[in-house]
Design a protein around this nucleic acid. Structure first.
Lengths: 214, 214
DNA sequence: TGTACATCAGTGAACGCGCGTTCACTGATGTAC
DNA sequence: TGTACATCAGTGAACGCGCGTTCACTGATGTAC
């Protein structure tokens, strides 16, 4: 049984790792991150608890990787939509669909922070990948009518957007886009609109649209 | 040692309960809700673990009460500001201050939901107290220039605002106010703006202000 | 005012649980000669 | 092609931990007569 170029062991490893992660996601979707248990996952995968340590150094290690995957997934979705010609409204739609598909995955990134925890550096890099797309999309919008105080403020505080030679108003729109999308989504996904009877999708669309023409 | 009108035992009970809650909040602020431990609280208060059961039926019972207190605190703050003459911008400021004072308390209400958990009915009542104030404040705003799709949608989906005889546009503003405030605050408190260097307060003010004149 | 009694507030020991993690060990798999 | 060997992937037992919670029991506190 000759091994392939990448080695059959490596292929097997990748496969089992993927399977472990998948069960981890299911467990998170069911009971949230705090309830994620290595032993429970192992049982689902069909092996003993200690065997997981061949694939992940620790529980924290597994969770960190899940966070990274979640960021990656969102960044890829946003980038793909943009490359396919999506405008600001289209990007918003993409993000909303992504979040609705797995709310707990969304909250793993944008939910309640754990006081001591600091995200690894590469996730912040992925995060700015997303921001880059948003800025590019916002730069294509018709110019704003008037400058707000925050516009002015951004003129002298735009180091974080280094490399983007767009007006401060475009940066403002990108940030606003992000906070508005997040505002509607997190309240919606957390169930704070239940019992109110309106359609969150319309509110969402209006919030994004109001940002375009201002 | 004669007891007062309300009974010294009851007074003592209330005092110890308050002390337990206070230590619970400190623990939540330090390590988040999942790390909240009855034994650790008891040690801080200066008694054995089982003694807590004289004051709270269970850990869940304690947490539920903390959630209720958090809602109550926010509702009182908002109501007090409104009664003192605050407009929409003033209310936003009040909410922001409240959230910054104790981020984990904010997240206890508006953070990641636990999949199985359903908030008790009275907290949703307090929640609509808050919404009532927001609607009243928005109704005092100058009328909008044009109706959006969500405005129209609300005309026929406003049962949740029963008792408020205000234009649908005012309801829309109240909801938008809430999602925008939440959007900026939750990203800010979760640390997603760190490293970007701008002042979140200005972004926050702009988001609220943009809602007033539209 | 004194006494008897019910209630309240607390202790310490113990239970059972599930957790993450380590350890020694076994068998299978792939590789080098 | 066969053999020797290193590595990989897994098991099962065990460790120590802290958790929420229960139980029997003790002493203090307030109350009723």
């Amino acid at each position: 049984m000759a091994a392939g170029g990448t080695g059959s062991r490596e292929r097997y490893r990748a496969q089992v790792r993927a399977e472990i992660k998948q069960h981890a996601w299911e467990q998170i979707a069911t009971a949230g991150v705090p309830a994620l248990s290595l032993n429970a996952i192992a049982k689902r995968v069909g092996m003993s608890g200690p065997a997981l340590y061949w694939y992940f150094a620790s529980r924290d290690d597994l969770i960190t990787e899940l966070i990274r995957d979640a960021y990656r997934s969102l960044a890829d979705a946003v980038r793909a939509a943009f490359d396919a010609g999506a405008d600001v409204a289209g990007l918003a739609h993409t993000i909303r669909d992504w979040a609705l598909a797995d709310p707990q995955r969304y909250f793993l990134i944008y939910g309640t922070p754990v006081p001591g925890y600091h995200a690894p550096a590469d996730t912040t890099a992925i995060s700015s990948e997303i921001m880059t797309v948003l800025i590019e999309a916002c730069a294509a919008l018709p110019p704003s009518k008037s400058a707000t105080p925050f516009d002015t403020h951004l003129e002298s505080h735009r180091d974080w957007a280094e490399g983007h030679s767009v007006p401060a108003a475009a940066l403002h729109r990108a940030v606003s886009f992000w906070t508005r999308v997040h505002g509607v989504l997190s309240l919606e996904l957390a169930g704070h609109f239940t019992g109110m009877g309106f359609d969150p999708a319309l509110l969402f669309a209006d919030e994004v649209n109001g940002l375009v023409k201002r």
